[in-house]
């Protein structure tokens, strides 16, 4: 079996004295889409932040391309090829749409994603490239956030609750772009509260409950009952 792109092994995470993750293990293969679902506070965002280096972890708890990166600071993790689309979009308010995208490409990592390709993926943004990012609709801001992360040509894209606060029509629109992202060579981890959308988009699913992996498996094989039980806790 080939080396997984991302190998998370028995990851613990703390906020001060509070433990948010307990021995979480997870794997993402190249070209795969993995969904992480769970109730509020289950630790989904925390998991992504650990992978992205925002929260420091044990060095060998996270292996990327075979390299241990658990304790690497966030700005070096991007350089290795992991990009995070943060929860709540978090666009730079004094930058325009295009500037937000450009700063995503700050590192100049080689790859297919450049400004013109991003505008192909999200045509509505092209018309509004000079507009201050804060005056866009929620859905458009989400596209900018994703585009910004893509500009660093990541091998692994982490999406934290991209459906949050968006109308269902808009959510479907955003999710419709994901296959194009995968086909250009990025693997995905999507953290979602919208289970239906997550199951449709993902190859593999992990369900977190109170900081632990309660269920893991191929999306097609999981039953509604099993997911419910894992989500809420039997």
């Amino acid at each position: 079996m080939p080396e997984p792109l991302l190998d998370v092994r028995a990851l613990d995470a703390y906020y001060g004295d509070f433990q948010a993750l307990f021995g979480v293990s997870l794997r993402v293969a190249a070209g795969e889409v993995v969904a992480v679902i769970g109730a509020n506070g289950a630790g989904k965002s925390t998991l992504l932040k650990c992978i992205a280096g925002v929260i420091p972890s044990r060095r060998d708890a996270i292996l990327f391309d075979g390299e241990p990166i658990g304790d690497a600071p966030a700005h070096t993790v991007v350089a290795r090829g992991i990009a995070l689309v943060p929860e709540g979009r978090r666009l730079f308010s004094s930058l325009s749409v295009e500037e937000n995208l450009l700063i995503g490409g700050q590192l100049g990592r080689p790859g297919p994603w450049r400004l013109s390709r991003i505008y192909e993926l999200f045509p509505t943004l092209a018309a509004r490239r000079r507009v201050p990012s804060t005056s866009l609709s929620g859905g458009e801001q989400q596209m900018v956030a994703i585009g910004r992360a893509l500009m660093s040509n990541p091998k692994l894209l982490l999406c934290d609750e991209i459906s949050l606060g968006l109308a269902p029509v808009v959510v479907r629109d955003v999710y419709a772009r994901l296959p194009a992202i995968v086909s250009e060579g990025s693997s995905l981890i999507i953290v979602e509260q919208d289970i239906v959308q997550a199951l449709k988009a993902a190859d593999h699913v992990y369900c977190l409950q109170e900081g632990r992996v309660a269920l893991a498996g191929a999306a097609a094989t999981l039953t509604r009952e099993a997911i419910s039980a894992a989500y809420f806790g039997a």
Binding site: A52, V54, P73, H75, V78, P86, S93
Partner: peptide
Amino acid sequence: ADDQSVSQLMGLD
């Protein structure tokens, strides 16, 4: 200046 934590996600130290 806008967001010190997210700027790190862009690779800025």
